[in-house]
Design a protein around this nucleic acid. Sequence first.
DNA 1: CTGTTAGCGCGTTCAT
DNA 2: ATGAACGCGCTAACAG
Lengths: 337, 337
Amino acid sequence: MEDNKKMYKDRVTIYEVAKVAGVSLATVSRVINNHPNVTEKTRKAVNDAIQRLGYKPSALAQGLANSRSTNIGIMIPSTGYSYVSNMLDGMIDIAKIYGYITSIFVTKRTKEDAAQMIESLIKSHVDGAVIYDDELGTDEIRSIQNYHIPLIVVGHDMEGEALGSIIIEYKDPVMDVVKEHLMQGNDDVYLLDIVNQGKMLDEIRDGLLDYGASNGKHIQTLQFNDSYGIVYAGMKEFFKTHRTGYFVAPRDSLAAAIVNAAQESGLRIPEDVQVLAEIGSKYSYIVRPQVSSFSIDMFKVGSIAVRMLTKLLNEPEGVKQKTFKIRATFNKRETTK
Amino acid sequence: MEDNKKMYKDRVTIYEVAKVAGVSLATVSRVINNHPNVTEKTRKAVNDAIQRLGYKPSALAQGLANSRSTNIGIMIPSTGYSYVSNMLDGMIDIAKIYGYITSIFVTKRTKEDAAQMIESLIKSHVDGAVIYDDELGTDEIRSIQNYHIPLIVVGHDMEGEALGSIIIEYKDPVMDVVKEHLMQGNDDVYLLDIVNQGKMLDEIRDGLLDYGASNGKHIQTLQFNDSYGIVYAGMKEFFKTHRTGYFVAPRDSLAAAIVNAAQESGLRIPEDVQVLAEIGSKYSYIVRPQVSSFSIDMFKVGSIAVRMLTKLLNEPEGVKQKTFKIRATFNKRETTK
DNA sequence: CTGTTAGCGCGTTCAT
DNA sequence: ATGAACGCGCTAACAG
């Protein structure tokens, strides 16, 4: 009938609702936002119109009008690791409860990419963000703050205006366990050094190496790319010439590669070779023998992060605890003595 | 000096850039969007101003003005499963390349929650969305289309205007393998029936059950909640009274629970008990013995989905292939004969 | 090549 | 209790 070059109508706006309900758009707005001062009768009329037209307010327009997007940004490296996706789950879960949409910004462990994601984050007009990225320096993170975006940083010890941080203590617990092994007179530690494993794991490696150096222990390093298959193959080769050792792997799936390679080379665990995983997940207790590893409830970390953020968003000044520490716990299983 | 009750200035806008650069906001807009018809000189002036002020255009305002948010929605169940997070990675990866931000809508395997996420999706004003959700019916998905949001549906066979679909063929490959086992004269199949496993897995279960019923094979069903620990404990108990069987598990981590329970009950694999996992991942080849399972490159599925979507967004009419099928491949490993 | 103006859809005073 | 008008930050004709 009318103008049928457009097959279907565009997004229905608040104007149309107003017209259909026979009121002004201001009234519709009031109904949407549950303002008082609206007659029950007109409220019903408006709601009916909304129902009939299938009207949904545009978050874009609302955001622009309020300068609040009800959107929070989440910056993480690839979700490929289960600890990251667990954290992500925790974050999204809580965000949903508080009525926030979550936008994901994945960084690929390179400075340039991280910088581009920061750019993107700022443009996207999020109300706040939580950042879990091993690659970003504190200065880069601070640069985000120039745009007054409340931030929760996971893994960096930072403080500041509208800035909270969650500190994950992995290094000390790991070092404690390895030190104890070393102090028992052993000098057989091999460290799996994975390319691009991230800053946190690098720090543990360096800490261990330093400790070894200053205590007369020669900690050896085994370099691999980040792949179960590569580590597995490499270790099979390795065990042709080495028949013993205490191996420390960044993640338990990689530890599993060592475990499998060792056993298939006729080595006994933990009698001949011991294996310790820094970041533990389900692999740790599914693999046989079960892998000794450290673990943190990343889902919980994610929830806490977003909870802190929403607090920061709602009561900018009244947030007292801006730092939360969580320490990895050691689960001694069967791959270490 | 001025109004110091606000400690810091708000977001810098295009107006301020215009003022500083000594041009009109239209010119700034042109520079931002790389329009031609701008003197190199003024372009530089504008860019300098942008640089100096640290100006970033607001995606919100841009979106409102263009009625394009450069945002795509992704609807998935929890990212806790590795095949989901792999797909997510693929999607985000490609979205980034095409300049889209990705907003995640997680549904918790309930109709109500899914409905709420649809609501949220529509309000959020995404340009398009890819949906991978076992809970949604085709009718609900169609309802999204009333809002003219181009859609890619993963896992449902659907067609329509601005609607593409990716069909994941799991059922037939799985059934083929199980049928073959059955046809060799066996009648010992146990099906792990996991609560809330999702529609796809339900369909495979029903297909298998139907097949069994109409072919005189009594396929038994073992109900468990979705947890490695629970299945492991349950199967340990089970193996006290049953010493043989062909077990089909929805995911390989659950299959691993059976494998471990069987071995620790003194059973041999695959001589005494065989185990088959429907959805395979890294567990399949990390566990010993390695688990026979089906697999699909979900990262690829994610990439394809978003690629189809961007195509749909850019050339609404000119998309010929609106359906993409991908079939799970069977990886026979050590847990089946 | 550049400036002016009118929206995009909605929230919010300020009157009434 | 309700409506008119302006502004949020930006893009897109339309003039010049």
